[in-house]
C-alpha cells in the first residue's frame, strides 16, 4: 500500500540538494511535480474565481474509476502498458467530467441542494473506483503493481514519457487559458455582461471546465487523486493575498504551486518512505498560512490590530463626547 521507495531510501539520510539534482530520477521527480503544481496552480486561479473550489474535490475523487477503467481497457483490450500517463489522463478526464455534470444535473433537476449533490456524485464514483481497485488487486493483471499509488501518488514513479505527457497536456490547457484570457476573465467576473456582449456562455464554460479538469487529473501519478483539490485551491487562495490583478494572481499562483510542489517532492524523497502528495499539500498549506498572516495589505494580524486600535480610539472619542455633553 505504501509507495515502495525503499531503493531510494539508501541515501536518504544524507541527501543534499547537489546530490539530489545530480540523480536522474530525482531530477525527474522534481520536474514532474513542479510542472503539475504550476499547471494546477495557474489554472486553479480561475476555478477559485468562478467559486468552483469544491467541485474540484468531486472531480479529483471521481477521476479514480476513470483511471482504473483506462488501465483495464489498456491491459485487456489493447495489450499495452496500462499505466501510460496519456491513457490515465483520458480516463480520468471522462469520469471526472461525468461526475461534475452528474452533480450539476442533480442540483438543477431535483430539490437536492448543490453541496449534497456533490457529495452524492463524489461518493458514488469513488465507491465504484474502490470496487474496481479491489477487482484489479484481486486478479492477475500485468503491470498492476503500484496501482494503489493512484490514491496518494508516488513521485518516484514518474518516467520521462510521463513528464513529456504532463508538459504537453499542461501546455495545452495553459494555452487555452492564455488564448481565451479575455473571455475567461469577463465570464468569471461579470457573466451578465459577458452574455450580453455576445460571448456564448456554453462555449466559455466548456473551455474553462476542460482546463480545470486537466489541472486536476494531471497530478494522478505524482500526487494521487484524493488530495488533488489542495493543488487547485490552495495556491490561488494564497496568491490572492499578495496581488490585486488577475495576471499577477495567475502567475503567482502558478509559481506557488510549482515551487511548493517541487519543494514538497524534494522533502518527500529526502524523508524516505513517504507518499509525495501529502507532503506537498502540507507545504502548500504552510504557504497559505504565511500569506494570510504576513501579506502587507490583507494580513489578518495587521487587520485585527488596526481594527482594535480604531475601536479604542472611537471609544475614547465617544466617552469624551458623552462627558462634555
Amino acid at each position: 500500500m505504501v509507495p515502495k521507495l525503499s531503493w531510494l531510501r539508501l541515501d536518504s539520510h544524507h541527501m543534499d540538494p547537489v546530490e539530489f539534482f545530480s540523480n536522474h530520477i530525482f531530477r525527474m521527480v522534481f520536474l514532474g511535480t513542479t510542472v503539475i503544481g504550476l499547471v494546477a496552480g495557474a489554472l486553479g486561479a480561475f476555478a477559485y474565481l468562478r467559486k468552483q473550489s469544491l467541485i474540484s474535490d468531486v472531480i479529483g475523487h471521481a477521476a479514480l474509476p476513470g483511471a482504473l477503467l483506462a488501465f483495464l481497457a489498456a491491459v485487456t483490450m489493447f495489450g499495452v502498458n496500462g499505466r501510460s500517463m496519456l491513457l490515465l489522463v483520458i480516463g480520468a478526464v471522462i469520469t471526472g467530467t461525468l461526475a461534475a455534470l452528474f452533480a450539476n444535473t442533480i442540483a438543477a433537476r431535483t430539490k437536492v441542494a448543490i453541496d449534497t449533490a456533490m457529495a452524492i456524485s463524489m461518493t458514488t464514483f469513488f465507491g465504484f473506483g474502490m470496487l474496481l481497485l479491489r477487482f484489479i488487486t484481486n486478479n492477475p493483471f500485468p503491470g498492476k503493481g503500484g496501482i494503489q499509488d493512484y490514491l496518494f501518488g508516488n513521485a518516484a514513479s514518474i518516467t520521462r514519457a510521463d513528464l513529456t505527457t504532463s508538459i504537453a497536456v499542461g501546455a495545452l490547457a495553459m494555452g487555452l487559458m492564455v488564448v481565451f484570457w479575455k473571455e475567461f476573465t469577463l465570464r468569471s467576473f461579470d457573466p451578465v455582461l459577458s452574455t450580453m456582449l455576445g460571448f456564448k456562455a456554453r462555449i466559455i464554460d466548456t473551455l474553462m471546465f476542460t482546463t480545470i479538469v486537466i489541472a486536476i487529473v494531471i497530478g494522478v501519478k505524482a500526487v494521487g487523486f484524493v488530495l488533488m483539490v489542495a493543488f487547485v485551491v490552495t495556491p490561488p487562495a494564497a496568491a490572492r493575498q499578495w496581488t490585486n490583478t488577475l495576471p499577477g494572481m495567475v502567475m503567482l499562483s502558478g509559481l506557488i504551486g510549482g515551487l511548493g510542489s517541487g519543494f514538497g517532492a524534494y522533502l518527500s524523497i529526502s524523508l524516505g518512505n513517504v507518499p509525495t502528495g501529502p507532503v506537498i499539500v502540507l507545504v502548500l498549506f504552510a504557504i497559505l498560512l504565511f500569506s494570510l498572516l504576513a501579506s502587507p495589505k490583507r494580513s489578518v494580524v495587521i487587520t485585527a490590530l488596526r481594527r482594535m486600535r480604531a475601536r479604542r480610539a472611537l471609544k475614547q472619542e465617544l466617552i469624551s463626547e458623552g462627558s462634555t455633553r
Partner: peptide
C-alpha cells in the same frame, strides 16, 4: 468586489464586445 481587477481593467472590459 474581491475579484482581482483594477479600475482601469474594469473600464477596459467595456471594449470587449
Amino acid at each position: 468586489w474581491d475579484f482581482p481587477t483594477t479600475v482601469i481593467d474594469l473600464a477596459v472590459m467595456g471594449t470587449y464586445g
